[in-house]
Each structure stands twice: as structure tokens, then as C-alpha cells.
Design a protein around this nucleic acid. Structure first.
Lengths: 342, 342
DNA sequence: GTTATTAAGTTAATCGTTTACCTTCATCTG
DNA sequence: CAGATGAAGGTAAACGATTAACTTAATAAC
């Protein structure tokens, strides 16, 4: 590939002159400028970023570490990161840890000095990335990694044990609140909840939001209307029975998969969703548009999480002063479909 | 960040000695080696790849251009590419064109001198990538881009108008053949097909495979049992009626979405899928595991497509001689579920 | 005892840019 | 016309690694 020396040779000028023309630094006559530009085009010149970045000590790249790119929520987040990077003139390296096939519990293992993460970090640091973004589509909490030194670091879709590390998440509690309010506003007073498994932070927050909405609406919280699922379809099926028998006229399944189980239950027991029972899911996965009836569900702002994460990271890189810290919570929206329509 | 000079200074040796130790080139005493290694660790030294790659003129990186990372088939392919890169010691840049929000018809527009693609290529070439991989999750045919010069180039999940460019795809015809054979082997003689829209290369090949299987099995091809859909659910619903009335005992819907439409039709008309009608989809999307009954479908080898693409590209980069060219077709598999069980 | 060999390091050029600081020469000023 | 000014372009030193070619001193060979 042609370099500046080649261009300089052909044009009969020095490399410095070529550089000045190509970087629009002025001080070169129009004639010479045109000449150099035309040679550069002819030779299909492209700057060698290894040389440039070595000299200028900046890369305008960030590193993204994803736990598993095949998880349904990862691509829209990456998409958002990419959109922001494009807007601000950055590029990124992607290191996909592929946790799914490594039998690793990210919460426990990855965050230690596990070589899988550190290899990724080493590479990116060697590539002089200006910042690092950890996309924790599985993990809730990520241990801060000492090996990154003082490189800018941010967590996306997860939070960090080190509270000084900013993280961008969606607001589970507000989402739980909104779902309950929504159901209350459509006339329901006995709203069942199917939570995730014990220990899920997401689940606990959504439940808290739900409880607060009941309180704010002057409705009592009946613990019999809360039952603990395990995120899987079967548990939705099983627990729907219990909730319906406790008098629930609406069910908030804390993910779409369990909502499918509720639908199964209703089909089997000839309960008509919409008319006899309102149902709300969570995640806005494709299945929620495909099932019958279509499912009202909570849509986490995945693209925005990615975009905001990258935006924040780049702000920090560029030394913007009033950048946020701690947890940044983005609002979910409720996508209304047939499962809550009479 | 510490560099070799810092280490050399502390150790009282020359930079060359540090380089030899760190790259394990020998010729340095054990004592000095240990000393340098411990200082490197202490300073958390990481090589500057901009300097190294500038000097060695190799990057061990490839560039991936994706049309849209949020399309369901893209992440597993990228995953496969990543797995191969990891195995062979490469890293990659990802440029996501995000066609979905640009209103671009990739077949017509992107392949021209459109700046969106060329910007991506320019960056990657400037980054001295050893090869380029185009992931055409939407496009069928991609025009070869002259601006990449003689950089190694490969198409993944799409083919190229320039036949000298290798491409890795799945074998639509074989898949169509296999589906038909599978249904014939389970006793069906009148097998309906719902194709994609006119002009779809995928669809045409699948149909050809289906016809060949009929022929090989001594069954006549009845055109009334082929009807043209548009990939959407509604067309599955509509066309199922026609096919059933033409006597089909099995339906091969050429994607999962149209198969959902067939299920809708059967629910409405009290046809029991499995017993009264066998149904096969295509794509193995999540919905095929979630619908009821679960859907027997064709699973394209997405991970393998990614892995094979990357493997081929790296083979070419590394000058392996007997690398394949032209279209490389990988076999799909049939995932058997309830929709074809009696 | 001279020469050859080897081990352990050093020197310095190089990769392709950027950029601070020169040089040159034409033009302007008073 | 001496001196100032400024436009146009050149020189050369970085950036942080790699590596061919060299030095030095110790050991081996005969």
C-alpha cells in the first residue's frame, strides 16, 4: 500500500508537505495541494493508523467486552454503542468472552483474575484503547478489574462492585411500578406477580416497584399474590394456577418466557386472556409479538443503554467535566398488546 | 503506561535486551531474564501494538462488516467468527452498517460507491487489517468492492458478484431436499410448500431441492401444492387453506414465521398439527421452540458459517495453498419437534 | 599460545506518521 | 535599498517497538 513517502516521491516534495496537505494544515500552495491530492487519490492512499496513532498517542477507539453476543439483549446494546461511536468518530474492538460455552459463572469466576477476561483486557490495552466498556448481559455485578489501571471504564447493563465506576442500566423498580400502575388504571385490584428466582436483583426491584404502586394507589399488598418462578416457561404454567385461585385478575410475569407458561395454563383451562385475565410480561422478546394473544410487555431500552454507555465513556475520555457517576437508570416502556385488551 | 525504555532503564540494560527477553528470543542469561520479567510485571507492562505492528507490518486482525447486527442470524455468525479468531490468534474490528435505519436497499445501494461502506473499509484498511469479511445478513449478492485492492476478502452468508471471491453459505437446495425426504420417509406423499416471495434465491433453491426429492422418490410434482408466500405470518395463514384443500398432509413453510401462520390456521380450523398435518419451518428461530406445538424446522449452521468464513480468510491470509474458492455450502440440519410427531 | 567459537549484550536503523523549527525567497515598508 | 514580513516548503527528531549487525569477553580447540 502506498505511503506518504511514495506520494512525496512522485510529487517531488517532502513528506512533511504531503502530511500538511493531507491533514489540511495550510501553508501549502493551491497548486501543490491539488497535485498531491490527485496523486494520493490515484495511489489509493490510506493513512497507516499504526504510524499515526503511535505518533499522536491517541487511538479514538474503545474496547467492548461482552459476555455473550448471542444473548438476545446484547445485539441492540452493541448497536447503540456503535451508533454513538459513529456519531463521535470512534471505533471499537469487540471481545466476546463466549461465557455460554465455558461453563463459567460470571459472577464468581470471570471477575477474578481469570485469564479469559484479562487476555481481552491485555489486548485492548495493548491496542491503546481510550476506554473500556463491559457489557454484562448475564452478570448483575462485575468486580472492578485492577489490571485496567486508570483507563476509563464503564459498565453497561450491569453494575460494578466499585461504586465509582459508572454503570448504565434500566430502571427495574420504575418498570415494576409502571406495570402495576398500568394494570390498576385499567381496573385491576388483585394483581398476581411471578418473580424470578431467589436472589435475582432484577426481580426484587421489580417487585418493590409493584408494591409501591399498590401502596400509592391505596391497595393492600397481598403476599399470596406473589409467587416465585425461575424464569422458565414451566414455572409460569405452574404458578398461574395458584395466582388465579388466589383471585388474581391480572398477572405480571417478570419475563416473557414465564408469561408463555401463563398462556399455556389459560389455554388449557379455557381462560381467555384479555377478557378473563390480563397478562404482562417483561423483556419484549420476539416471542411476545408471536404468541397468541400477543403479549403486553416491558421493553427495556437496550439501544439507549448502549448509546448512553458509550456516550458517557467518550465524555470521560474527552475530559468532559460534569459526567455522571454511579448508576444511571434508563426508563423502560410498556408495549401494549392484546394480552391486556378486553 | 510503561514502555520498554522504562524497563530497560530500571534494569540497566538496553531496549534490545528487553525486547529479546519479552519475545523469548534467547541469548540472554537467566538472571537478566528473570530481572527484566519481574520489572515488566511490576510496571504492568503491555506492548504497544501500534509500535510493534508498525515495525513488523502485520496486525493479526481482520475486519468484519455487518449489515445489521440486530438481525437474528448475525450474532451466531459473529460468534463463530470470534471463536475461530480466538483459536488462531486474531482479533477483529466490527463495523456495523446498521442498514435497518438508513433506508438502504443493500443489494442496490450499498454495493455502489456508497460512503457508508467505503468509510468502513477505509478505516479497516488504515488499520492494516489482514483481511476483510462481509457479513450479508440481508443481501444475497454483494458487489465486489474495488477499493479493497488485493486485500483478502470473503463473503459470509451471502455471495459475491465476483465469482473469484469465496463465500460461505448454507445449502438451501440440500435443505429443501432433506425436508422433503424427511416428510416422505414419515409417510407423506402430498407435501405442500409455502415459498418466499418471487425472486428470492433462497426460496427457489429450497423448492428445487424439494422437487428433486420428490423425483428421487418417484412422486409426482404437483404445482398446486406450491404456493408463494411473502415470508410473513399472514401469508402462512392464507396459503395453508389452499394447500390443505389441495390435499396436503404435510406443509413445508419456508420460514418459521409463515409456519406460525399455518399454526394459526390449524388452530382456527381445528386441525391438529402432528396428527392431521405435519409442519416444517425454516430458520430455527426462537419462536419455533416457543410455539405450540413446537415446530420441526431447519437449522442453518450459523456458527459454522462464521467459523468457516473466518477460517478460510485466515488460511488465505497465511498463504495456505489449497484454500477453497467459489461458494462453500454448509449443510443445514433438521431439528425435529412436535409439529411432525403423530 | 594462538585462534575459533559461543554466550550475552549493545548499537542503530527502521516502520509511517506528525510537528516544531528551520530555510528560502518574494514582496512590502518607509 | 535595508530590513521586516509572510508564504511555501524542507529538516529532522520523535513515537515504541523489532532486528540485523556488531562488540566484548569468556571458553574451547588444537
Amino acid at each position: 500500500m502506498a505511503n506518504m513517502k511514495d506520494i512525496a516521491g512522485r510529487a517531488g516534495v517532502s513528506v512533511a508537505t504531503v502530511s500538511k496537505v493531507l491533514n489540511d494544515l495550510g501553508g501549502i500552495s493551491q497548486e501543490t495541494t491539488d497535485h498531491i491530492l490527485s496523486i494520493a487519490k490515484e495511489l489509493n492512499y490510506r493513512p497507516n493508523l499504526y504510524a499515526r496513532n503511535l505518533k499522536t498517542r491517541q487511538s479514538r477507539t474503545i474496547g467492548i467486552i461482552t459476555e455473550d453476543i448471542t444473548v438476545f439483549n446484547a445485539p441492540p446494546i452493541i448497536d447503540g454503542i456503535g451508533a454513538c461511536c459513529e456519531e463521535r468518530g470512534y471505533h471499537y474492538f469487540l471481545e466476546n468472552l463466549r461465557l455460554y460455552n465455558l461453563g463459567i459463572n460470571p459472577l464468581l469466576d470471570v471477575n477474578e483474575q481469570s485469564s479469559i477476561v484479562n487476555d481481552a483486557i491485555d489486548f485492548m490495552m495493548s491496542m491503546q484503547v481510550d476506554g473500556l466498556l463491559y457489557l454484562g448481559c448475564h452478570s448483575h455485578k462485575v468486580v472492578h478489574l485492577p489490571s485496567i489501571g486508570d483507563t476509563h471504564f464503564i459498565c453497561s447493563y450491569c453494575s460494578c462492585t466499585d461504586p465509582s465506576i459508572p454503570s448504565v442500566l434500566y430502571d427495574d423498580k420504575k418498570a415494576g411500578y409502571d406495570v402495576a400502575k398500568y394494570l390498576i388504571n385499567t381496573g385491576h385490584k388483585t394483581i398476581g406477580v411471578i418473580t424470578g428466582p431467589n436472589g435475582s436483583i432484577h426481580s426484587a426491584k421489580r417487585l418493590t416497584g409493584y408494591q409501591e404502586a399498590l401502596y400509592d394507589s391505596g391497595l393492600p399488598y397481598n403476599p399470596k399474590l406473589t409467587s416465585q418462578g425461575d424464569w422458565n416457561r414451566d414455572s409460569g404454567f405452574l404458578l398461574a394456577d395458584q395466582l388465579v385461585k388466589s383471585g388474581a385478575t391480572a398477572i405480571f410475569a417478570q419475563n416473557d418466557l414465564m408469561a408463555m407458561g401463563v398462556i399455556d395454563y389459560c389455554v388449557k383451562n379455557e381462560i381467555e386472556i384479555g377478557r378473563d385475565l390480563a397478562l404482562v410480561g417483561f423483556d419484549n422478546r420476539e416471542i411476545s409479538t408471536v404468541c397468541r394473544p400477543t403479549l403486553t410487555t416491558v421493553s427495556p431500552p437496550l439501544f439507549e443503554i448502549g448509546h448512553t454507555s458509550a456516550s458517557l465513556l467518550i465524555d470521560k475520555i474527552e475530559g468532559k467535566t460534569n459526567t455522571a457517576s454511579g448508576e444511571i437508570l434508563l426508563e423502560c416502556s410498556i408495549i401494549e398488546r392484546d394480552s391486556t385488551k378486553r
